[in-house]
Write a protein that binds this DNA or RNA. Structure first.
Lengths: 353, 353
DNA sequence: CTGAAAGCGCTTACAG
DNA sequence: CTGAAAGCGCTTACAG
């Protein structure tokens, strides 16, 4: 006897029930399936995942058995919608490809997942242009926190992020006015430190081969200002667009020496450019660091080998990753206030002769 | 006059309405806010985002204005739950750090987002152990497709993925029994090709310095089998755990030459190991490729410069990324069947003297 | 071209 | 320690 109607028609039934609609995630095991199988209510199943300590041990194992048997995986779209906790953290980095930030992303992701969060990677591509669009995509997932690379963001991005009211960590840079939390270091001070080191070595005709993103330009300013303070005003420079490469570095030195044959020091950042510069110097028969001192940025592992005469700047990307993750985790746990952490940097001279 | 009760108490009110519960994403602009502001129904607002071509131009612009003014960002947790379309694709890669796969991830992500999908990165960490746990985390987001790195997955993973029934692309490897689609190349054939090249150069005492992951071991098999087919059975080898590094390569050659002073060829993969081997050879005064021929894997950009005598194997990671993305996009659009695409590889000899 | 109602699969805030 | 009801913010499948 299918389609039996309820007998309670005496009690007004104003709207006739419309035909069944098949929609949404019809297939797949739901929490109610597990509940039925384990002989408990859906709420109890939910607790097994989200607050197991509040469930009786015997119930716990019965539910877990049902979960395993049915192969149930909770639907976090539903869970997130219901609880307003997406358990998602967005990490916005310029690029995934051969990047300075990959160490940071790696440990950040590891640390966050150990704390029960998943990382949604947003690739911003070094341009502010689509950053707004990327932010739309990211925010549509309702992340509970955001890691940002750098501090120079379009005003619109700052405002929107501020309005959303979730914890933010900016990284890999320094500023007096962070959006929220900050774990990084000063690129300006790096440029200044490199300049001082080169000055101490006696350099008087410095040059620059550098990427042209915000952070590289901050290093450039520190470099230029410091030389200026010592009376060296005129610095030859080659700015290259991303992605940096050995070839661009090689080409950079070529242009520098053509323009300024008396160049006695080059600050190249990142290290990939420095490798090109060192290689080209070798090809030209120019002694490094004897004739031209070269300093890079990024401390590529193999640089030590490839270019033992190369001074470089080391930054601990892993430390930035863990620290940033901890900041967010603390904040999400209710603790942790607005703070700025400077992880500093290190000038590395390996085997300067 | 707050809390005015409805006047219709004559019509049975069996269950007293419980107190209001504040829960879920209380704050934030909802689709109903936009609808009210634009003077349309929520469905129309939904259409503006998901099927703008079905909305009258004038309505469209009115709604978009309201969206812009209120700063509305659709909640994809809700949208995904309702439509069973998360617009999320999972990409599972071993690591984010200095990786061969970063090019693939980059273009994959770019291509997918241009098609309206976001990429959820899962870092599997080279071990099958937590792969099940990672899969739980990933599947809980209900991705519409999955990109996998490699083809050697635990049987449980294969089964679970198969059961979910979403499109899968395996990448960076080759197999006769893919889970679904496959975009990659044969590591075994690479090992064989390298062996043949070295044999042609006259090598008779080959050695191996290699990572120990599944794909590196497949290259090893191709290498060993091919030499065996030519009567060379005894191959010295050093297998190193991830992450590979220049230092491990250096150490590797040291052990090889100590064990087999007559070694005349070394296959090192990945290239980071090859760089170490070449560097150590230089330190030992061993001519490369004169005394020992060295072949790497991965075609690191700077290797050309660092070790011009290094033969290496180039694989087009970007092509894998785009192709894999296209496979998924086609399939999600209803077209595209199960297929295997071999992107091949290339042996690169730069300036062998 | 537009809208009213129902439902996606969870969790919250109670009450017991 | 456990559960019944309501609701999170969307979209589907209609109907007009």
């Amino acid at each position: 006897m299918p389609n039996e109607k309820p007998t309670s028609e005496l009690i007004a039934a104003p709207v006739p029930a419309p035909a069944r609609r098949s929609r949404g995630a019809k297939k797949g095991i739901r929490i109610t399936d597990v509940a039925a199988s384990a002989g408990v209510s859906p709420i109890t199943v939910s607790r097994v995942f989200n607050a197991p300590e509040t469930v009786a041990p015997e119930t716990l194992s019965r539910v877990r058995q049902a979960v395993a048997q049915l192969g149930y995986v909770p639907n976090r779209l539903a869970g997130g919608l219901s609880s307003a906790k997406s358990r998602l953290i967005a990490a916005i980095v310029p690029t995934a490809a051969h990047s300075l930030f990959s160490d940071t992303v790696q440990v950040f992701s590891d640390t966050m997942s150990r704390a029960g969060y998943q990382v949604l990677l947003g690739l911003s591509g070094y341009s502010d242009e689509d950053e707004d669009q990327l932010l739309d995509a990211v925010l549509s997932r309702r992340p509970e926190g955001v890691l940002l690379t750098g501090v120079a963001h379009a005003a619109s991005l700052r405002e929107r992020l501020l309005k959303v009211g979730i914890p933010i960590v900016e990284t890999w840079d320094m500023t007096d006015e962070p959006i929220d939390m900050l774990v990084g270091f000063s690129h300006y001070r790096i440029g200044a430190a490199v300049a001082e080191r080169l000055l101490a070595r006696g350099a008087r005709h410095p040059a620059l081969v550098s990427a042209n993103d915000d952070r590289a330009l901050a290093r450039r300013r520190g470099f230029v200002d410091t030389f200026a303070a010592h009376g060296v005003q005129d610095i030859a420079e080659v700015l290259v667009p991303p992605p940096s490469s050995v070839a661009l570095g090689r080409d950079g030195l070529q242009r520098i020496v053509a323009e300024r044959p008396d160049t006695d020091a080059v600050f190249c950042s990142p290290d990939l450019l420095a490798l090109g510069v060192v290689s080209q110097a070798r090809k030209l028969g120019v002694a490094v660091p004897g004739r031209i001192a070269v300093c890079g940025f990024g401390d590529l592992e193999f640089a030590a080998d490839t270019a033992p005469a190369l001074t470089t700047v080391r930054v601990d990307g892993k430390r930035i990753g863990v620290t940033a993750a901890r900041c967010l985790i603390d904040r999400l746990a209710g603790a942790g206030e607005k703070k700025v952490i400077d992880v500093g940097f290190e000038l590395v001279e390996r085997e300067t002769t």
